[in-house]
Design a protein around this nucleic acid. Sequence first.
DNA 1: ACGCCAACGTTGGTGCAGCCAACGTAACAC
DNA 2: GTGTTACGTTGGCTGCACCAACGTTGGCGT
Lengths: 150, 150
Amino acid sequence: MDHAAPQSPAGLSTTPSWLLNQTASHAARLLSEGFAAHDLRGYHYRLLATLTEEGPASQADLGRRCGIDRSDVVATINDLAGRGLVVRAPDPADRRRNVISVTDAGADEARRMGVTVERVQADLLAPLSTDEREQLTRLLTRLLRHHSRH
Amino acid sequence: MDHAAPQSPAGLSTTPSWLLNQTASHAARLLSEGFAAHDLRGYHYRLLATLTEEGPASQADLGRRCGIDRSDVVATINDLAGRGLVVRAPDPADRRRNVISVTDAGADEARRMGVTVERVQADLLAPLSTDEREQLTRLLTRLLRHHSRH
DNA sequence: ACGCCAACGTTGGTGCAGCCAACGTAACAC
DNA sequence: GTGTTACGTTGGCTGCACCAACGTTGGCGT
């Protein structure tokens, strides 16, 4: 018995930033639900995925690569380390740094979360053809790259 | 493929939900900065814009149309009313409802914020041609419409 | 060798957005 | 009349993004 909720007023619904915000919000919700099954959140996945892809790194490096603030990296790594998914070790070559490495359990979890993410992507992009998905990816990538050089 | 870009790991940077999240985040930041000049936030704009576009409405209706929770509508309308941008009046036809209307000052502010939003859109979409902007809008709209019927 | 500055990890705090539970009141269905 | 739904409101919680400050450490210029 849902009201035929006429979502989003005409003026807003044609605004790209509105569309971006809404779709991203939707994607984030789907991802969040998927991550909940792993009892983890977005930050955890970003760090874990980056570590498994690119190998051990310092916290500052991780933050830079994932777009996560250094202070938030600390808390998230604390959490991941507490679950035994990563290991924090001092860098012998630079005593300011910690070297973060994934454990075997962490690699497993990353793989499992990767599956979840794949499923969410498929769900999210269901109404789009392969060509259209590439179009979307290309357009968003160009926007990001343009704005990433502050 | 593995063109190791300094930003965002390869596996993530090809993930549509990641791209959506990052671009939306960027757009939100730009909008937030723009709104700051008006000493207002996103919720204020959504409600104000919806009201000026579609006329007076109840709070619950506004919330449904803007995708804002009822409780958040309360606080935002409180704020807007406190600034004299909207008026909250009891609905004589249904005493559960409040009818929210924009004042002249509110309409002015909405117009000014609209200009700000336009500027942000232009900034955001700068690297895209007119055709590409339409493509993006079309793709996002289809995604949203597909997922809006829950 | 020294001093200065930059980078690192860490603590603590801010703000916005989204969401949910609960309450009292009012409208509506039966 | 009774029960159910909708409304406005209060209060709270989570996630994401961001900032300021501090002590420690490394690197650099002189």
